[in-house]
């Protein structure tokens, strides 16, 4: 892990274990995310990549261990974390009865910045057409346009951002990610695809899989 004092740690995970439906997905997970760096979460299907991301944004609450945002622990730190969070999940959060422009305005963008962001993802000219008329890739780009808004939040958590994108789209997104890291942001993403980013670390969830089928009886076991 590239932990150098030059880059302060923003998000720290200590001895994290996540359960789903009473099944332990992984345990003993440790990593730190610093400003200006990206971490790629790897792992086979069902390894718990999405669950991990959803835990880190506070949507999934079934975890043991410690998650720290700028030094203060979850869940108390969640409201502060959300101040500087930009999360894009499997579902992009794009409403198909709205136009791309309206979708971005719903996310708090101004009209000018929304148009600029749509231009960046090559959707200029489509800003006024309803999203259910657009293709899957175009809808994905509407969701990703949030990354191109000026004043983007500092922490990006992205679940498979490259799905449904063409080669040009992937390149533009990588360029934007690099720019984000360069200006002091940090990125946590899941992807099966090799990335060419400057300061990139990776965490493979397969290394933290559990083989013990039975859960030992511990004090923490009281609470779900």
């Amino acid at each position: 892990m590239p932990v150098t004092p030059k880059f302060p740690v923003v998000l720290q995970v200590r001895d994290l274990a996540c359960d789903r439906d009473g099944r332990r997905l992984f345990e003993g997970l440790d990593f730190s995310l610093c400003t200006g760096t990206a971490i790629q979460i790897k792992g086979s299907n069902g390894a718990g990549k999405t669950t991990l991301l959803r835990t880190l944004i506070g949507t999934a609450s079934d975890f043991r261990g410690e998650i720290l945002w700028c030094g203060s622990p979850f869940p108390g730190a969640l409201p502060v974390l959300r101040e500087s969070l930009l999360y894009i999940g499997h579902q992009g959060g794009v409403r198909d009865s709205l136009t791309p422009l309206e979708n971005l305005i719903w996310y708090g963008a101004t009209r000018e910045s929304a148009l600029w962001a749509l231009d960046c993802v090559d959707l200029s000219g489509f800003e006024g057409s309803l999203c259910h008329g657009l293709s899957a890739g175009e809808n994905r780009r509407v969701a990703l346009a949030r990354l191109f808004l000026p004043q983007a939040p500092s922490l990006w958590i992205l679940d498979e951002p490259f799905t449904a994108l063409d080669a040009v789209g992937v390149a533009t997104l990588e360029q934007q990610m690099a720019a984000h890291l360069h200006s002091g942001g940090s990125i946590l993403l899941t992807s099966h695809q090799p990335l060419s980013l400057g300061r990139l670390a990776s965490v493979d969830l397969s290394d933290f899989m559990v083989d013990e089928p039975l859960v030992a009886m511990e004090a923490e076991h009281v609470f779900s």
Binding site: S84, G108, P150, Q151, P153, T172, Q176, H180, S183
Partner: peptide, 14 residues
């Protein structure tokens, strides 16, 4: 996509 060089301003608040 357009090949403009993009440098977003990272701000704390969204």
């Amino acid at each position: 996509m357009s090949s403009v060089d993009i440098h977003p301003l990272v701000s704390g608040a969204r």
